[in-house]
């Protein structure tokens, strides 16, 4: 789908600013993911492979989101 460059700029900027504000590297994200999954696995059976972690913008505050499917 054709996208106007104004929208592309806005989306790139949003992601960039999010990363700036959180100042969180990809390695850190991976470590958080590993630790959280390990902790949850102590209590319930989860699908490690299909788990996702990402940061989103919510009301101008960064939001850390986990998607952890339960087996």
């Amino acid at each position: 789908m054709y996208e106007n460059s104004g929208n592309i700029a806005r989306d790139r900027l949003k992601y960039l600013i999010l990363k700036d504000r959180v100042s969180c590297t990809n390695e850190t994200i991976d470590m958080i993911k590993y630790d959280v999954l390990k902790t949850i696995s102590n209590y319930i059976d989860v699908d490690n492979i299909n788990s996702q972690i990402f940061i989103e913008q919510n009301d101008n505050k960064p939001l850390l989101i986990f998607k952890v499917p339960i087996k």
Partner: peptide
């Protein structure tokens, strides 16, 4: 004219980000 064609970010885009 660029904003009208959506080829440039507009005020609400920038406002939303900078708050």
């Amino acid at each position: 004219s660029m904003v009208a064609r959506n080829e440039m970010m507009n005020l609400s885009d920038v406002e939303e980000i900078l708050a």
